[in-house]
C-alpha cells in the first residue's frame, strides 16, 4: 500500500542517475556508422600535382590514416604538431583530405606550418567529406589493409589519443595479416 508512494521517488532517482552520467558525455560527438565498414571509395587529384590522382584503392595492403583538414580550420593547427611527430616517426602513411579549401591557400598553409602528409588529396566541394560523414574538421580515420575503416577520431588528434588509442590499434592491425 505504502510502496506506491515511493514510485515517484524511485523514478526520480533513476532519472537523476542518468543525468549525472550524462554530465560526462559529450552530446555533440556523433559516432560514425562507417566504423568497420569499407572506406568509401574516392579518387581525387593530389594537392601537390593536379594531374596525379590518389584513391582508397592505391592504399590497399597498408594500414593508413586519413586526416581531414583545411587551411581555414583553426583546430587543425592545434593537432598539427602531433601529426608532424607521427610523420617523423613514420608510423603509417598519413593521407590528408583537404576539405573545402582552395589549392593556393592549402599549399601556403602546408608551407608555413610543415607538411606531415604522405600526400593530400583535394576535396574542394566536400563531396567525399559527405561520403565519410565528416561534420567538423579535423577528423581522422584509421583504415586497415583491406580498406576497412577501423576507427574514427573526431576533433584534433592529441598526443594522448595517439599514445592510448591510435598506436595500439595500428599495432594490432599491422600484426593482423
Amino acid at each position: 500500500m505504502k510502496a506506491k508512494f515511493l514510485v515517484p521517488l524511485a523514478l526520480f532517482l533513476v532519472l537523476a542517475g542518468f543525468l549525472g552520467y550524462g554530465l560526462q558525455l559529450n552530446p555533440r560527438e556523433v559516432p560514425s556508422p562507417l566504423v568497420d565498414k569499407p572506406a568509401p571509395q574516392f579518387r581525387l587529384a593530389t594537392l601537390a600535382a593536379a594531374d596525379t590522382a590518389l584513391g582508397v584503392a592505391d592504399m590497399r595492403g597498408e594500414v593508413w590514416l586519413l586526416n581531414v583538414w583545411a587551411s581555414w580550420c583553426v583546430s587543425c593547427r592545434e593537432e598539427h604538431p602531433v601529426l608532424m611527430e607521427l610523420a617523423r616517426d613514420k608510423v603509417v602513411p598519413l593521407v590528408g583530405l583537404n576539405y573545402k579549401d582552395t589549392r593556393p591557400e592549402a599549399i601556403a598553409w602546408l608551407e608555413a606550418h610543415g607538411d606531415p602528409y604522405t600526400a593530400s588529396v583535394v576535396d574542394a566541394d566536400g563531396r567525399v567529406g559527405i561520403d565519410y560523414g565528416v561534420y567538423g574538421v579535423p577528423e581522422t580515420f584509421l583504415i586497415d589493409r583491406q580498406g576497412v575503416i577501423r576507427y574514427k577520431h573526431i576533433g584534433p588528434v592529441t598526443r594522448e589519443a595517439v599514445r592510448d588509442v591510435l598506436l595500439p590499434k595500428i599495432a594490432e592491425l599491422s600484426r593482423a595479416s
Binding site: 500500500m1 505504502k2 508512494f5 515511493l6 515517484p8 521517488l9 526520480f12 532517482l13 537523476a16
Partner: peptide
C-alpha cells in the same frame, strides 16, 4: 530538493 520532497511525500502522503 526533489529527493527530499519526494521522500517526504512517500512518508506523509499515505
Amino acid at each position: 530538493v526533489i529527493g527530499v520532497s519526494l521522500t517526504l511525500f512517500a512518508w506523509r502522503a499515505p
